[in-house]
C-alpha cells in the first residue's frame, strides 16, 4: 500500500515534533510583546542605530525619543517606508530634517514595509518611555587617542590585523590619504574626510556599530565591528581628516602601469617560448615544404 511509506519507525517521533514546535510558536505568540520587542530591537540595531539614538541626542540623524509627539504616525510611517518620496514631494518637515542633518538623506531600507515601520514606531515609543533606552548612544571619550590606537586603527583599515567577526578590512573598498603602497579600494567613497562629514567621533563611532548603506549592511549585519575595533578606526580616521585633502596618492596610474608592464613581460615570454614551435613546424606543413 502506498501509505505504508509513511509508516516508518521514526515517523511517530517526527510527527510529535511538529505539534511541539507549533505549541512553542503559539506560546511565543501569546506572550507577544517580549518576542516582538526583541525582534524590533534587533532590527533597530541592524538598520537604525548607525544614525539614530533614542534619548542620546542627535548623531547623524535626529534623536528618536518621543518622535511620535513631533509628527503623526501616518507621516512617520510613510517617511520610514520611502524617505526620498517625501523629500521629492517637497514636504516641508522632511526638508527641515535634511537641513538639520546637514544634507544627509535617510537611505531607503531594503525590505521595509508599512508593517515593519509600525512595529518600529511602537518599539521606539516603548523605549522612549524608559528612563534610559538601550539605544541611548555611545559614550565616546574626548581624550586624545594614543599612538597605539592610531597604529591599531591603521592595521585594521589596511589589513595586517583581521577583524574579529570576520568582516573585510576597509581597504577592500575604501581609501584614505597616505595609506602607502597602491592605496585603498575605489568601489566605495574615499574616507579621508568622513570624520568631518559625520561631524566627529561620536557619530562616526555610532555609524561603525552598524553601517546601514545598501552595500555595507549585508557585509556587516552578521559580522559587526567590535567596540575594540571601532575606537582605533575612529582614531585612524580622525588623524586622516586632520591631515586634510582627498586621497592624493597617484596610485591609479601606478597600478595600471604595473599591470601593463607585467602584461608586456608576458607577451615577450610567450614569443620567446613558442618561437620555434608554432612557426618552424606548422607553417611549412601548410605551405607544403616538408624539408
Amino acid at each position: 500500500m502506498p501509505t505504508n511509506r509513511f509508516a516508518h519507525p521514526r515517523a511517530p517521533g517526527g510527527r510529535a515534533a511538529l505539534p511541539v514546535g507549533l505549541l512553542a510558536g503559539l506560546l511565543a505568540l501569546a506572550a507577544g510583546p517580549p518576542g516582538a520587542a526583541e525582534e524590533a530591537a534587533t532590527y533597530f540595531r541592524q538598520n537604525c542605530m548607525s544614525c539614530h539614538t533614542i534619548g542620546g541626542g542627535r548623531t547623524v540623524g535626529p534623536d528618536l525619543k518621543h518622535v511620535a509627539e513631533r509628527k503623526d504616525a501616518a507621516w512617520l510611517e510613510a517617511f520610514i517606508v520611502n524617505p526620498k518620496a517625501k523629500l521629492d514631494a517637497g514636504d516641508p518637515y522632511a526638508l527641515q530634517l535634511k537641513e538639520e542633518a546637514r544634507g544627509a538623506i535617510m537611505p531607503p531600507i531594503a525590505g521595509m514595509t508599512p508593517e515593519i515601520a509600525r512595529s518600529l514606531l511602537a518599539f521606539v515609543a516603548a523605549e522612549s518611555a524608559l528612563p534610559k533606552s538601550q539605544f541611548a548612544g555611545l559614550e565616546v571619550t574626548d581624550e586624545p587617542f594614543a599612538a597605539a590606537d592610531l597604529e591599531r586603527g591603521r592595521a585594521l583599515f589596511r589589513g595586517g590585523a583581521a577583524l574579529a567577526n570576520g568582516g573585510p578590512n576597509c581597504l577592500s573598498c575604501h581609501t584614505v590619504r597616505g595609506l602607502g603602497g597602491l592605496g585603498g579600494g575605489r568601489l566605495a567613497p574615499d574616507l579621508t574626510k568622513v570624520y568631518e562629514r559625520l561631524q566627529g567621533r561620536r557619530n562616526l563611532a555610532s555609524w561603525l556599530q552598524a553601517p546601514a548603506t545598501p552595500t555595507m549592511r549585508p557585509l556587516f549585519v552578521d559580522r559587526p565591528l567590535t567596540n575594540e575595533e571601532i575606537l582605533p578606526l575612529v582614531a585612524f580616521l580622525e588623524e586622516a581628516a586632520r591631515a586634510g585633502g582627498e586621497d592624493n596618492a597617484p596610485t591609479q596610474p601606478t597600478f595600471l602601469l604595473l599591470g601593463l608592464g607585467a602584461a608586456a613581460v608576458g607577451l615577450v615570454a610567450a614569443d620567446a617560448v613558442w618561437r620555434r614551435r608554432l612557426r618552424a613546424v606548422r607553417r611549412p606543413l601548410v605551405g607544403g615544404r616538408h624539408d
Binding site: 568582516g167 573585510p168 581597504l171 577592500s172 573598498c173 585603498g184 579600494g185 568601489l187 591609479q252 597600478f255
Partner: peptide, 12 residues
C-alpha cells in the same frame, strides 16, 4: 582599474 580591489570585495 576604477573599482579596486575586486579580489577583496568579490568574495564578500
Amino acid at each position: 582599474i576604477f573599482h579596486r580591489w575586486g579580489s577583496s570585495w568579490f568574495p564578500t
